[in-house]
Design a protein around this nucleic acid. Structure first.
Length: 960
RNA sequence: GCGGGGGUAGCCAAGCCUGGUCUAAGGCGCAGGGCUUAGAACCCUGUGGGGUAGCCCUUCGUGGGUUCAAAUCCCACCCCCCGCACCA
């Protein structure tokens, strides 16, 4: 019952403030020359499903940052759009239409889509729209401070005009190339296949094979391999005796390959004419010539050969391929042939026949043993990393394997003894049931991210950018270095047509690189001031690049010149982008393309200034996935815990770059915490104002507050949200508790006479909390009677005049004293009846000061200096004290001790006297305080001599 | 393989760049106590081992090294996660 009550309260608070924000247009940002601007964006969502709590992390961090910057006095623009481009939505709509039970279940049970709207979602646009609205509602519920007037989708006509402008620019600059490209392909659907098109969501991985042509008369037998360097170790050729093979004319050459293979290879632009079909066994016993060395090798049979994989014929290297080794072993047993493995690679720890060793180690007994797969990988790895070519490999002898592999590949291809063919790394089936093949697409358009001059500019931009966290800068550099040309258009999917070749759709990672600029334009389109279908290149040239004449541009799209100029002004106000936020997964693709395209299109002044990257979210330690069924939809979580608790739960459990763990119990705890916080504000709000004199503890709280403001501010600047949460929630809570404890109040209500201090503390705390928990912050802000929105309030200023080192050290001293006393109490048999503290004698303080002021303190010098002051204590005792102090000093908290001894022994004594009543309450017994060397000291166990500055001696009497 | 991140007490997780105040923040969990009719919340104390005095011993993936001193610096090794392209 109670929980339900809290939840509904939270809900009503959220609704209230959401409404007020909207009415007040709190997050709408236009050009405002009176303020510095801060423009930040986050990668727009792809609406093929509702968002789950994992998505919430990136958006929440960005929103927190936006809110922080807003309070720091910036004109903050935080917009949002939706990415419709690509195939997943299409594929999903298609699956839904085909009554896919699994998907229907997912939609109904997890995404809570009403069954009656399901039918509509079979239209991909409607599906996108549906999830678009769902996500948008979720973002509003989360309290994101987004300027929604700038919203768009990537299939809007205006956006398409913009993307087409971008691509013409890229082409003009020579960054677009045309070529061929191998892709996974479904022959039955006639489409390329991506992960979402395959059974079991397998990503089709295209692998490049080298087909080495062994000669048998006029015919070539192309044997496909990933390891062309092993051609020196070939002893024979394998065919599957039961399978169908063909003789065919392939690109003018006579080939012998598997029948199934021939069908698959047709998609790789090979001209193929089948002459004859026969069984594999028909050529077993024949011989073929190894092109690398002219040796004659026999054709043998092997069951493991898949006639549909690659060419359906393989060369046998028994010494380095476990499959070949096992097949040969069996062939020898069956036919008594005399073939021996030829070893051509050696590595540390290798025997005469490495494949034999691996098979033995792994206990492999036949050529159909599934462990052969692992054996192959293992040997591949070892030989790749540490293999050296042996002397029987001619000019390659002594070379490392990777190098030899590349050179032999080139040699064979140049002599036309081999050619490249492609095959999928594993069998992949389209959702229609067909086995996927590799198809070579002609006229494929590429963005040439390999262009070196372009890369130079990217490096330049990267060097000038702030990367948060800094550790990822190196990763960006590596990505830029590796990046080659990238196919930028696809044959199907939603999106923008390639302006010069309308058969192609610009793919999703290519149409999402500079759209931050488009948010400026989108506002004017959404306001109905511009007809998006009229937008032309001249418009974008002027608005985004300042090129051309505004009057001509305006008349070409039927608007007033002033409007065009206004848009330009707004663009130039907000650009360059101050921060781009996103999850880690986008580093090697989107974020890097984002830099590439910015430096390609925009002048240097408009290059982006910062990238912020965060890790992902795990669900109780595991990755969130449909198959694990552990997805927590965002909106459901908001209903369950409230937006503020959820916001904090997703951003506070790990450092920025680390994967965070979502824990429902933490979210629950945070919800309770925020509820308690609201209660506290209500209590403080009703307190009458007080005018009590400020004592040391008051000064301490206010001083701590300054430190907290400083640290929280720094944490937000660094986007160390986790730290900010810890400070604002827990550290401030601890400080407040200590304050109440010291004041002898068992709860907040009792502390009414300190309301002036508390109100100040609470006011600042509300502001520090505002970026993290906007709803709660607005609520408590109004509870304590502040007018106006806290999200627009000024960030608390650090007042260094209120930092009181003495008060802080004193409280720290008291805390340590309690700790020390507790340590003693712990080992005592009963409750204490009396505790006595002894402040160290003045000369001990002198000793400390002397030692701390010396670089290399020694007993003699200090002793001599002390004698001048005329101490009346046993010299031996002093010397001993000096000795032990010097020894233990490195182990002590040097800084603390150093500043402590700046004070006089009187300070410590007065402090203890002052805290006596407090200590008596704490330990519930009498407390006495003496100077160690006072004339009358109660010291039955002679503890007083143990007193040290900063560490009074303690004597505890226990109840009998 | 290449590249990146990481291995810290029962769990999650900070610290590591800039060695000492580190038995190592904070949270969760657990135990004891306070408050309370009771519970929840809240507060205090404890949570590697030992100890009738604030202490001693042991610990930060493993093994070495540097240093008066290492979770922190150096070397080697083991293990886990992510990316490697046309997929958003």
């Amino acid at each position: 019952m109670l929980v339900a009550f809290i939840a509904s309260t939270t809900k009503s608070i959220e609704e209230k403030w959401r409404k007020i924000w909207e009415e007040e247009r709190a997050y709408e940002a236009d050009l405002n020359q009176s303020k510095p601007k801060f423009y930040l964006t986050v990668a727009y969502p792809y609406p093929n499903s509702p968002q789950h709590v994992g998505h919430g992390r990136t958006y929440t961090i960005t929103d927190i940052y936006a809110r922080y910057k807003r309070m720091r006095g910036f004109q903050v623009l935080f917009p949002m759009g939706f990415h419709y481009t690509g195939t997943p939505i299409l594929a999903m709509a298609k699956r839904l239409a085909s009554e896919d039970e699994e998907l229907r279940d997912l939609f109904i049970k997890i995404y809570k889509v009403p069954e009656e709207v399901l039918k509509e979602l079979e239209d991909p646009f409607k599906m996108a729209r549906f999830f678009h609205e769902e996500i948008k509602t979720g973002m509003k519920e989360m309290g994101y401070s987004i300027d929604w007037r700038r919203e768009f989708t990537t299939v809007d006509p205006g956006y398409s005009r913009f993307i087409q402008w971008q691509f013409r620019k890229l082409k003009e600059k020579g960054y677009i190339k045309i070529g061929t490209h191998p892709v996974g392909w479904c022959p039955s659907c006639g489409n390329p296949v991506g992960q979402h098109d395959t059974k079991g969501d397998v990503e089709p991985e295209v692998v490049e094979f080298v087909a080495i042509k062994f000669k048998m008369g006029d015919f070539s037998i192309p044997t496909a391999t990933l390891r062309p360097e092993t051609v020196f170790g070939v002893t024979n050729i394998w065919v599957n005796p039961q399978a169908d093979y063909v003789k065919a004319i392939v690109d003018g050459e006579k080939w012998i390959i598997g029948l199934k293979a021939s069908e698959r290879l047709k998609h790789q632009n090979l001209k193929m004419e089948i002459l004859e079909v026969f069984k594999g066994r028909d050529i077993v016993g024949g011989n073929a010539v190894n092109p690398i060395n002219g040796q004659l090798v026999p054709i043998l049979e092997a069951k493991f050969v898949d006639p549909g994989h690659a060419t359906g014929v393989v060369m046998s290297v028994p010494s380095h391929a476990p499959y070949d080794y096992m097949a040969l072993k069996e062939a020898k047993e069956k036919t008594g042939c005399l073939i021996e493995p030829i070893t051509i690679i050696s590595f540390e720890g290798a025997g005469n026949v490495p494949a034999a060793d691996v098979c033995r180690e792994m206990g492999i007994e036949s050529q159909t043993d599934p462990k052969l797969e692992d054996a192959t990988k293992e040997l591949y790895r070892r030989e790749l990393t540490s293999g050296i070519m042996l002397s029987n490999t001619g000019k390659y002898s002594g070379m490392r394997v990777p190098e030899a592999r590349e050179l032999i590949r080139i040699e064979l291809i140049e002599k036309n003894d081999a050619r490249v063919i492609y095959e999928l790394s594993e069998k992949v089936y389209c959702r229609c049931g067909e086995s996927c093949v590799v198809k070579i697409l002609e006229n494929q358009w590429f963005i040439d991210y390999g262009n070196l001059q372009w890369k130079e500019k990217v490096y330049e931009c990267l060097d000038s950018m702030r990367i948060v966290p800094e550790e990822l800068r190196i990763e960006f550099k590596n990505v830029v270095e590796w990046l080659r040309e990238r196919a930028c258009a696809r044959q199907r999917g939603l999106g923008t047509k390639l302006p010069w070749d309308e058969n192609w759709i610009i793919e999703s990672l290519s149409d999402s690189t500079i759209y931050m600029a488009y948010y400026i334009v989108a506002k004017y389109i959404n306001m109905g001031l511009i007809d998006p279908t009229k937008l032309n290149d001249g418009f974008f040239d002027y608005v985004l690049l300042g090129l051309g004449n505004p009057r001509d541009v305006a008349s070409s799209i039927d608007v007033k010149t002033e409007l065009i100029e206004e848009i330009r002004r707004e663009f130039i106000y907000y650009y360059p982008l101050d921060s781009r936020n996103s999850g880690r997964d986008l580093v090697p693709n989107h974020l890097t393309f984002f830099i590439f395209n910015h430096v390609a299109i925009f002048p240097k002044e408009l290059w982006p200034k910062q990238i912020v990257i965060n890790g992902s979210v795990l669900m109780e330690g595991r990755k969130m996935s449909k198959s694990l069924g552990n997805i927590v939809p965002l909106r459901e979580a908001v209903r369950e815990y409230g937006a503020d608790a959820l916001r904090i739960a997703v951003v506070s459990t790990a450092g920025l770059l680390q994967d965070a763990n979502f824990s429902p119990s933490l979210a629950r705890t945070l919800a309770d915490f925020l509820e308690t916080l609201r209660r506290q504000y209500r209590v403080v709000a009703t307190m009458p104002s007080s005018s009590s004199k400020t004592d040391r503890v008051d000064k301490w709280l206010i001083s701590r507050l300054q430190e907290t403001v400083k640290e929280v501010t720094e944490a937000f600047e660094e986007l160390d949200v986790r730290k900010a949460v810890q400070l604002v929630l827990y550290q401030m809570d601890n400080d407040l508790n200590w304050f109440l404890r010291r004041k002898g109040c068992s709860n907040l209500e009792e502390a009414f006479q300190y309301s002036n201090i508390l109100k100040k503390f609470m006011e600042v705390r509300a502001k520090l909390l505002a970026p993290l928990a906007p709803y709660t912050a607005e609520e408590i802000w109004s509870i304590i009677g502040e007018r106006g929105l806290i999200c627009k309030a000024e960030w608390p200023q650090l007042d260094s005049s209120l930092i009181d080192e003495e008060a802080e050290k004193s409280e720290e001293f008291i805390k340590e004293l309690i700790e020390d006393t507790n340590k003693i109490l712990r080992v005592l048999p009963g409750r204490p009846s009396r505790i006595v503290y002894y402040v160290a004698a003045t000369w001990k303080w002198d000793v400390y000061r002397e030692i701390l002021s010396m670089k290399e303190p020694d007993v003699k010098t200090i002793l001599m200096r002390l004698e001048k002051t005329g101490v009346e204590v046993d010299k031996a005792a002093i010397a001993k004290f000096i000795r032990t102090t010097i020894d233990m000093l490195p182990k002590m908290g040097r800084d603390f001790v150093k500043s402590w001894v700046e004070f006089k022994p009187d300070h410590e004594f007065n402090l203890l006297e002052e805290a006596k009543r407090f200590l008596e309450r704490e330990f519930r017994c009498e407390v006495l305080v003496y100077y160690e060397d006072a004339s009358e000291v109660y010291d039955p166990k002679k503890r007083a001599v143990l007193a040290r500055p900063c560490k009074p001696a303690i004597y505890v009497e226990v109840e009998k």
